[in-house]
């Protein structure tokens, strides 16, 4: 099983951008985020990160889980995958649009590609009352 790590994230106060905790400050790129495998270390860092709210740097820091794929942290939850990338419907917007902030993974396509009009599927159903 892939190893789980924790990452601390927040939104930057002045523009709302997604940021990640790294050592003693913030980075806009998930790939540069500090990965915590120790719960206590993560909790200690979160306390420090929370102090930055007062200073007017960020809003609402919290931690989330990611799976380590080699060294790349891939968030477990869809929400964090999307925060790390940008709207899945607009690949030209958000972090994913800029090579310097783009995550090193891709969000799975949300659904199957459309079927051509004359689909064979629905014809096969027997609709009984």
């Amino acid at each position: 099983m892939a190893k789980l790590v924790e990452i601390i994230t927040a939104n930057r106060l002045r523009d709302g951008a997604v940021v990640y905790w790294n050592q003693d400050g913030w980075t806009g790129t998930l790939a540069d985020a500090e990965q915590f495998s120790d719960k206590d270390a993560c909790a200690a860092a979160l306390t420090k990160a929370q102090e930055r709210v007062k200073a007017g740097e960020v809003v609402n820091p919290y931690r989330f889980e990611a799976r380590l794929d080699h060294t790349i942290a891939v968030p477990v939850k869809e929400r964090e995958l999307i925060r790390a990338s940008g709207p899945s419907i607009h690949p030209e917007l958000g972090k994913q649009a800029d090579p310097s902030t783009a995550p090193r993974f891709r969000i799975a396509a949300p659904a199957k590609p459309p079927r051509p009009k004359q689909a064979e599927g629905p014809e096969a159903f027997d609709v009984s009352l």
Partner: peptide
């Protein structure tokens, strides 16, 4: 005042919401 740290986030948030400004996933 919020940017200068004179207002806390807890104090600022209701004011922000009263002006139709939410914080979402990627931005405000």
């Amino acid at each position: 005042r919020r940017l200068k740290g004179e207002l806390s986030e807890d104090e600022f948030k209701p004011l922000r919401l009263m002006n139709g400004l939410y914080l979402q996933l990627h931005a405000y």
